[in-house]
């Protein structure tokens, strides 16, 4: 199953992002699947240090190693896009 259709995977990703970035005032349900994570619309107010934390979370919890910031910006856009990258089929 492609990642963007796997609700359990997306919940894990949202929980990881909220925990790594200490955004405990936001629930996974409030985080939309198709919103740009690093945009104002997400309500997360993430910055470059959050990006590093998310990168570490992907490495430790999902065994995904993103080589550099270009890779990160390409992959970590929305929850759907990230889920599809982790689970392409």
């Amino acid at each position: 199953m492609i990642g963007s259709q796997d609700d359990a995977l997306k919940l894990r990703l949202k929980t990881m992002i909220i925990e790594e970035c200490e955004k405990e005032d936001i629930t996974p349900e409030e985080l939309a699947d198709d919103v740009e994570l690093f945009s104002d619309a997400s309500g997360l107010e993430l910055d470059s240090l959050d990006a590093l934390q998310i990168s570490m979370g992907l490495q430790t919890q999902f065994k995904i190693r993103l080589g550099d910031s270009k890779d990160f910006r390409r992959v970590v856009t929305t929850i759907n896009a990230l889920a599809d990258y982790i689970q392409p089929e």
């Binding site: 240090l49 590093l52 934390q53 570490m56 490495q59 430790t60």
Partner: peptide, 12 residues
């Protein structure tokens, strides 16, 4: 132990 780089926040 976990053979991982340090978490950025912990490092800071």
């Amino acid at each position: 132990i976990h053979k991982q780089p340090p978490k950025p926040v912990d490092f800071i």
